[in-house]
């Protein structure tokens, strides 16, 4: 992590700062004012029933969804808009793409490119987006595949990999852009139970290396063990948040209690 040269009393901004984030699809309000902060190196787990807006919030951070109201900034930079003279200007697609480079995203359904091998999947973005030399990109990509335990699967197409392996390739693909923030959208929900562990292990490794992560998950064990904070969302609002051990052991809110009694 490159520490910015502190000038006087200036403080490093939080990695993610959400203020009253609101999102509607037509008349349906999915997010009703989410305010939260994710510090550098923090691992935050977002939990809650389906339809509570967790995934939508995650997609807002990456500007895959456009906010209806509120402010959202990553590393001190407003997402999707530029602010000048007290006015907001919508970003051109090019600028938005530039912001997304630094934010890695892992999807529930992996979304690997099926016409490329595992190695090509990992190499694609550094080659095309950053324009790095091929030899360098390839050696980095091979290192990343080794890191997720798939060095021997580099030349396999996604169709020939198990779900767990595909998701690990997807993580390597996101890491290849050297993101400062990683978003995980239910990364283990589409996996066979016996394959969940291998993906969570990779994520644990990532967390221990100090990566800032926001994880939408139903894996309470992972949340308890790895997360620094846990946020419980329901019906588009943050119901409760705090240390995972505390929230999981002593949920204060009735809605949290009801949810946890079902999943724990």
């Amino acid at each position: 992590m490159s520490g910015t040269l502190a000038t006087g009393a200036s403080v490093e901004p939080p990695m993610v700062l959400a203020e009253q984030v609101t999102k509607s699809f037509g008349a349906h309000e999915v997010l009703k004012g989410i305010t939260l902060e994710v510090k550098r190196g923090e691992v935050m787990c977002l939990v809650g029933p389906s339809g509570s807006g967790k995934s939508t919030f995650l997609r807002c951070i990456n500007h895959l969804e456009v906010l209806s109201a509120g402010r959202l900034s990553v590393d001190g930079e407003l997402i999707g808009y530029r602010e000048a003279n007290g006015k907001l200007y919508e970003m051109a697609p090019k600028e938005a793409a530039k912001q997304r480079r630094d934010i890695g995203m892992v999807f529930q359904r992996f979304n690997l490119f099926p016409h490329m091998t595992a190695l090509q999947n990992v190499m694609e973005a550094p080659l095309r987006v950053k324009g790095l030399p091929k030899a360098k990109v390839e050696s980095t990509a091979r290192d990343l595949l080794a890191r997720v335990g798939l060095a021997d699967r580099a030349d396999y197409y996604p169709a020939h990999l198990s779900g767990g392996q595909q998701q690990r390739v997807a993580i390597a693909r996101a890491l290849a852009m050297e993101p400062k923030l990683m978003l995980f959208d239910e990364p283990t929900s589409a996996l066979d139970p016996e394959l969940v562990g291998e993906v969570l292990d990779v994520m644990k490794g990532l967390a221990s290396e100090g990566m800032t992560m926001i994880v939408v998950t139903h894996e309470m064990g992972f949340a308890r063990e790895v997360a620094d904070s846990l946020v419980f969302m329901d019906a588009g609002v943050v119901v409760e948040s705090g240390l995972p051990s505390e929230v999981l052991a002593n949920p204060r809110h009735a809605r949290t209690q009801a949810f946890l009694s079902k999943v724990l």
Binding site: N62, L64, P93, K94, A97, K98, R100, R101, I103, G104, M105, F107, R109, N111, L112, F113, E124, A125, R128, V129, A170, R173, A174, M177
Partner: peptide
Amino acid sequence: DKGQEEASIALGMSWSQ
């Protein structure tokens, strides 16, 4: 699949890429 476009965009690739 729509997910392909999203994955590509999330990696910072442009529309034409």
